[in-house]
Amino acid sequence: MAMMIHVDIVSAEGEIHSGQAEMVYAPAIMGEVGIAPRHTPLVTRLKPGEIRVDTGSGEMKHFFVSGGILEVQPHVVTVLADTAIRAHDLDEAAAEDAKRRAEEALSGQQADFEYAKAKSELAEAVAQLRTIERIRKGKRG
């Protein structure tokens, strides 16, 4: 039997693929790499592109990744795939957006956190909850 290498493709939102393969092709940042069993340890960023997994039975599995990280150990290949399209300026824009939202939501707001006010309101809410609990228990008993 031909030598096999284990392939895991995972993203933050779930596992995409897990299984044995004869050969894995991935779009690394400096050009496509092909990984055979007993490859030397390697870590690389991935470009958006296609990952091909040659399962050895003549079947080729295709997965699209929009970037991510590839980790290679002699018998395991791990692809940490991004589900989102990442680019520096895109991330920057997203960050700006998050900031702007916060500013809009809180415009005209004092900068210091008021412990006393918050605490009293929370105490009230908790007391309410506790009362409800007690009423409920009393009814049942």
Partner: peptide
């Protein structure tokens, strides 16, 4: 919660 009690919110979603 922070709108009511202040505090510097840097980002939100």
């Amino acid at each position: 919660f922070f709108r009511r009690f202040g505090g510097k919110v840097m980002a939100q979603i």
